[in-house]
């Protein structure tokens, strides 16, 4: 039931994704601020399918000489492509330490095989745009899991967040964020097949309830 209703292709399913800032309050407790968060969901067949977005509307936001969104989508498989609009929660924490920014992401393989995957993050605008990580599957509870646990955010992202926080008005932050995108591409290391591709765009949250998001399937009608 999760196919078409959550971030999942026929090969790989995303369970969780978050980026957060963590600061010690005292030696035993930490304040944790989630900038963005996709929590676990358990969709059923009665849930509606995700809304779709025509991928041609956002191609230009994810350009690349080689391996950009258009080229990746043309290669397929088309059921592996998603768009996430994040409403980012502004932080009241005052980060001083660079090692307090983290990213977590959990996936599991829908196939009963132990693949090794490459996870790349293509940041725009940034030169060079790619941050690449290799992840190895672990067998847990009958599934092959990929757990990216407390991975430090790259220096570019941390500096970007610092600069954004110093803008005095929300519309200024949104204006900067309109030109900032991240493309997360998970590929099978051996076959180079695209397992999952998630295009992220951002806006500042106006909610008091924390980071929010919408997920869309990317299609070409």
């Amino acid at each position: 039931p999760w196919q078409g209703r959550s971030i999942a292709s026929s090969k790989l399913r995303m369970l969780e994704f978050s980026a957060f800032l963590e600061q010690p309050q005292d030696p035993e407790t930490f304040n944790k601020h989630l900038f963005v968060h996709i929590g676990q969901s358990n969709p059923s067949y009665s849930d509606p399918y995700l809304e779709s977005v025509d991928i041609r509307q956002i191609y230009d936001k994810f350009p690349e000489k080689k391996g950009g969104l258009k080229e990746l989508f043309d290669k397929g498989p088309h059921n592996a492509f998603f768009l996430v609009k994040f409403w980012v929660k502004n932080s009241t924490l005052n980060p001083l330490l660079f090692n307090s920014f983290h990213l977590e992401s959990h996936f599991y393989s829908c196939k009963a095989q132990s693949d090794t995957v490459h996870v790349s993050y293509i940041l725009r605008p940034h030169n060079p745009p790619q941050v690449m990580k290799t992840e190895y599957a672990r067998f847990e509870n009958g599934r092959y899991m990929f757990r990216i646990h407390r991975s430090p955010l790259c220096e570019y992202m941390i500096n970007f967040i610092h600069k954004l926080k110093h803008l005095p008005e929300k519309y200024m932050m949104n204006s900067v964020l309109e030109n900032f995108t991240i493309l997360q591409v998970v590929t099978n290391r051996d076959t180079l097949e695209t397992l999952l591709c998630v295009a992220y765009v951002f806006e500042v949250s106006t909610s008091e309830h924390g980071a929010q998001h919408h997920i869309y399937r990317l299609v070409k009608d």
Binding site: E51, V53, Q57, V201, E203, S205, Q212
Partner: peptide
């Protein structure tokens, strides 16, 4: 040369793209 992009607001995107979800 820099290519001027179409603002997101002028693109064909679902209405929900501009509506921040409310906490349920």
């Amino acid at each position: 040369s820099a290519v001027e992009q179409v603002p997101m607001r002028k693109r064909q995107l679902p209405a929900s793209f501009w509506e921040e979800p409310k906490l349920t």
